Amino acid sequence: MQDITINITDRNGQIHTIDAPTDMNLNLMEVIRMYELAEEGTIGVCGGMAMCASCQCYILNDVLKSERNDDEEAMLSEAYHVKPNSRLGCQINITSNIEGLSIEIAPEQ
């Protein structure tokens, strides 16, 4: 078992440095919910199916190497507050490859 460190800026601008387990098959949206870093009912509304963009976040460093998948592209094309560095947290798996990731949770949809 190995935890990784992720820096998450919440919707109020507060930075949280959290430990996320890599052995539980979690995604970033689930970790944000687990640490209660967004108001309940405002993140992961679709349950992580890439169908609502409530878990949109902005990638703040170059740790994440994966590109958006087709479902993510489609959802973000319809979302608000989208930036070039926008990703859906439900599509980012917690693995050792993203150690040190820094993100900002996007404003509510």
Rank of each mutant, 00 (worst) to 15 (best):
I32S: 06
C52N: 10
I92C: 00
H16K: 07
D71H: 04
E39H: 13
L26H: 09
Y80Q: 14
E67H: 12
I103E: 04
H81Y: 15
P107F: 09
G47F: 12
I94W: 03
C52Y: 12
L101P: 02
L28S: 03
I8F: 11
I43F: 08
D10G: 11
G44F: 07
S54P: 10
D19C: 06
I18M: 04
S86E: 05
C55F: 12
Y58I: 08
E72R: 03
K83A: 07
I92G: 01
M34G: 08
E30S: 02
Q91D: 02
D3G: 06
Y35I: 06
G41M: 05
R68W: 02
K65R: 06
D23W: 01
G41P: 01
I59H: 06
A38N: 07
A106S: 08
V31K: 10
Q109K: 07
I59E: 07
M49N: 13
Q56S: 09
Y58V: 09
I4C: 05
M1A: 06
N85P: 03
I94F: 03
G100H: 06
I94Q: 02
C55T: 07
S96V: 04
R33A: 15
E72F: 03
H16M: 09
K65C: 02
C46A: 12
S102D: 10
S54T: 15
K83E: 14
T9G: 05
A74G: 09
C52H: 11
E104Q: 15
G100C: 01
N61W: 08
Q2Y: 07
V45K: 12
E67C: 01
E40N: 12
L64M: 04
C90W: 02
K83T: 08
M1C: 03
S66T: 10
I6P: 00
E39P: 04
P21F: 02
A106R: 02
E30D: 04
M24A: 08
S66P: 00
Q109M: 10
E39G: 13
T42H: 13
T22R: 01
I18W: 04
V31H: 07
I15M: 14
D70I: 07
I4G: 06
L76M: 04
S66K: 05
Y58D: 06
L64S: 03
R68G: 02
G13R: 10
R33Y: 06
N12Y: 15
I92R: 00
R87E: 06
T22L: 01
T5E: 14
C55P: 11
M51W: 05
D3R: 08
G13K: 10
Y58T: 10
I4E: 04
L76E: 03
M24G: 01
I15N: 15
E67V: 03
I43V: 15
G13Q: 12
S54W: 13
E99G: 02
I98F: 05
Y58Q: 09
A38H: 07
H81F: 15
A50K: 00
N97A: 09
A79Q: 09
A74C: 09
L60H: 13
L76D: 02
A53Q: 07
M49Q: 14
E78L: 15
Y35G: 05
G48R: 03
G48M: 04
L64K: 05
A53C: 14
T9K: 14
N85C: 09
N25D: 13
M34L: 14
